[in-house]
């Protein structure tokens, strides 16, 4: 099941990119087959019949919030670039995450990097270490709510 789903996704992407010709179909089949075996052997992930639903949730619920945060963070960067004397108190804080799985943690870390004023530095087990320009919360729970609260719930739904 996992092999078949991975093969279908890869093959569809290949055909969309290369065009619908006989040679491309054959070459795409071979390349997708090899890639499927390599990925399924080496990478730890799950893919099943709920994948299209998750993809739709990802596109229509997660991406708008993410894009809005990206725009906000760029306005923030513009403000700080044009007047670099804004008082700051930078710091490295660690926040706990409940997400399981490598892809979920990767997505969360990337989202944290692209939100205003934060930059994820490292992941160790269940903790993400974040450099923030302005440490707001006093306790780890407050920091967690401020930095990753929005994304954590949605990603929990998507990656189960």
């Amino acid at each position: 099941m996992k092999y078949l789903a991975t093969f279908l996704v890869l093959f569809t992407i290949y055909i969309l990119l290369a065009g619908f010709y006989v040679q491309e179909l054959m070459l795409g089949g071979i390349v997708s087959l090899v890639l499927t075996f390599i990925l399924a052997k080496l990478v730890n992930y799950t893919i099943d019949y709920r994948f299209p639903v998750k993809l739709l949730v990802f596109i229509f619920a997660y991406l708008p919030i993410f894009t809005w945060q990206l725009v906000l963070s760029n306005i923030d960067v513009a403000k700080r670039v044009l007047s670099p004397k804004i008082p700051l108190n930078p710091g490295f804080v660690k926040i706990k995450t409940d997400l399981k799985g490598d892809f979920a943690k990767l997505t969360l870390a990337n989202s944290i990097t692209l939100t205003p004023g934060t930059l994820s530095v490292d992941i160790n087990d269940d903790y993400i270490y974040v450099h923030t320009v302005d440490v707001k919360g006093k306790t780890p729970e407050e920091n967690r709510e401020i930095i990753s609260g929005k994304f954590e719930k949605l990603l929990g739904v998507i990656f189960k």
């Binding site: 990206l70 760029n74 960067v77 513009a78 700080r80 930078p90 004023g117 930059l119 450099h131 320009v133």
Partner: peptide, 12 residues
């Protein structure tokens, strides 16, 4: 670290 932040966000 500020350089890394602003460079990454704005160019992305």
């Amino acid at each position: 670290f500020d350089r890394i932040q602003s460079g990454t966000k704005a160019t992305t």
